[in-house]
């Protein structure tokens, strides 16, 4: 037989052999099944403060200033989480006309959160505390400062301070 024809014949048989092997391989492939799953994430806004109770005690005075020294607390941490857009955090007190002065300032850990300047809670109006809150969780330290003048006298005032995530 001509060498060329012999090569052609060999090639044919090899092709046939691998064709059969490949067809078996293809036939051995598996089957599948499907499931349809429905995914959803609803908008949610969560906010919390770690200190439920804060006592600010004014019991000292400055001879130099001639006034009682203010009392401060920075132990509070405000945390929040939102997956919505364009939110802000507001703060308000339930005291409509307090005798003593209570100020609050937020110190965000994330630069993206824009904290308002020091807020004086001398009425029960709502004040913006943190702006530009969108799709993230955040945290800020809450510094409370209570002060009184001698003329304010003595007494006890209870503030219920409410932090709220709301649309900006």
């Amino acid at each position: 037989m001509n060498v060329r024809y012999r090569h052609i014949a060999k090639g044919f048989w090899r092709l046939l052999f691998f064709g059969v092997i490949f067809s078996q391989f293809v036939r051995a492939q598996g089957v599948n099944t499907q499931q349809v799953i429905t995914l959803q994430v609803v908008e949610l806004n969560k906010i919390g403060i770690n200190l439920n109770t804060v006592n600010l005690l004014i019991d000292q005075a400055s001879f130099e200033q001639g006034q009682p020294l203010p009392a401060e607390n920075s132990d509070g941490t405000l945390v929040w989480t939102t997956n919505g857009d364009n939110k802000k955090i507001t703060v308000s007190s339930n005291q409509t006309s307090p005798r003593f002065t209570l100020k609050l300032i937020a110190q965000p850990e994330n630069n993206a959160d824009i904290a308002a300047p020091e807020i004086t809670l001398n009425d029960n109006t709502i004040h913006d505390l943190v702006m530009g809150v969108s799709r993230r969780s955040g945290k800020c330290r809450i510094r409370l400062n209570a002060s009184a003048t001698l003329s304010d006298g003595v007494g006890i005032e209870n503030h219920v301070i409410t932090y709220t995530i709301t649309s900006s």
Binding site: N32, Q34, L39, Q40, N83, R135
Partner: peptide, 17 residues
Amino acid sequence: ASAGTLASTSKTVTLTL
């Protein structure tokens, strides 16, 4: 939360043997 909300979405999961 940073991913935002997700409207109801259907996905097809294919299990292949």
